[in-house]
Nucleic acid binder design. Structure first.
Lengths: 83, 83
DNA sequence: CGCAAATATACGCTTTAGCGTATGGAGAAA
DNA sequence: TTTCTCCATACGCTAAAGCGTATATTTGCG
């Protein structure tokens, strides 16, 4: 389901879960996006320094998409500032 | 609303829109997260090489959160592999 | 138009991701 | 135990983000 991720660690965890669900090894995923197994490992480990491109490539290969939304959810009377 | 972002450019655009909605300058946002105005500029420009940490810090300061979900939406006959 | 604020860009520097390559360790199956 | 797959980690290297600082350039307002 939808996974909220506020930290690199959470992002890495989502990527890893998805990869496993697709039954792919880090090596196999790496090959899909022309990156080293070590790079995938690093991304899944939640490195703050990982590059945006790395994440997006991995997500794309895993059939994931990224959604950005205001942090306030559920209550509707506080979404006041997004023009 | 929820913004799907599949490219660094789209991510940067969302960040920029939100920042403007909050009436912040790149400089002001940069100060909040201890980063240079130029770094914010780069992030908003959609640099694939921007770091995950940079994005997350900016999003946090802007009251944004990131959601990761399977790419397939709407159609139900292809959500086969997410255990 | 003229000016000020905001944003893009530049230079030299430091730090580090990702590269190729290689290995060590954990876990599973024979 | 041996073997095999998978993942974490290591070393030297290259490319580039982000830094401080500074300056173009663009944008908006009077």
């Amino acid at each position: 389901m939808d996974q909220i991720a506020r930290t690199p660690g959470q992002i890495g965890a989502v990527v890893r879960r998805r990869r496993k669900a697709l039954d792919l090894s880090q090596d196999a995923l790496g090959e899909k996006i022309s990156m080293r197994q070590a790079t995938i490992s690093n991304l899944e480990a939640g490195d703050r320094g990982a590059k945006l491109g790395t994440l997006l490539d991995a997500m794309s290969a895993l059939g994931l998409e990224l959604v950005i939304r205001p942090r306030t959810r559920g209550r509707s009377d506080e979404m006041d500032d997004l023009a």
